[in-house]
Simulated assay, not measured.
Amino acid sequence: MNINQGLRLVAGIMILVSLALTYFVHVNWVYFTVFIAANLIQSAFTNWCPMMTIMKKMGMQQ
C-alpha cells in the first residue's frame, strides 16, 4: 500500500467514525466531519496533508 492509498483509507475511516459518533453519541461530533473535509480541501490546494507526513515518518512507500 502506498501513501495515497493509505491516505484515502484513513480519511474514509475517519469520516465513517465521525458520522457514527454524530449519530450515536452527540450531534456536535459533526464538527469532526467538517474538520476532516476542510483538511481534505486544504490538501487539494496546497498538496500537503499532515497525515501524509505521519505516514512518511512511519516508512510507508510513495
Rank of each mutant, 00 (worst) to 15 (best):
M1K: 03
M1P: 04
N4Q: 14
N4M: 01
Q5C: 01
Q5N: 14
L7E: 04
R8E: 12
R8D: 12
L9I: 05
V10F: 10
V10A: 14
A11D: 12
A11Y: 05
G12N: 14
I13P: 00
I15F: 10
I15R: 11
L16M: 07
L16A: 09
V17S: 11
V17Y: 06
S18L: 01
L19K: 14
L19E: 15
A20V: 11
A20H: 04
L21S: 12
Y23F: 08
Y23L: 06
Y23I: 07
F24Y: 05
F24I: 01
F24S: 03
V25L: 08
V25D: 09
H26S: 15
H26D: 15
N28Q: 11
W29C: 12
W29T: 07
W29R: 14
V30M: 14
Y31I: 08
T33A: 14
V34W: 09
I36C: 08
A37Y: 13
N39L: 10
I41C: 06
Q42V: 03
Q42E: 09
S43H: 00
A44N: 00
F45Y: 13
F45I: 03
F45W: 02
F45M: 04
W48F: 07
C49V: 01
P50G: 06
P50K: 02
P50E: 09
M51F: 10
M52G: 01
M52D: 05
T53N: 13
I54Q: 08
I54H: 03
K56M: 06
K56T: 12
M58I: 12
G59L: 03
G59H: 04
M60F: 11
Q61M: 14
Q62M: 04
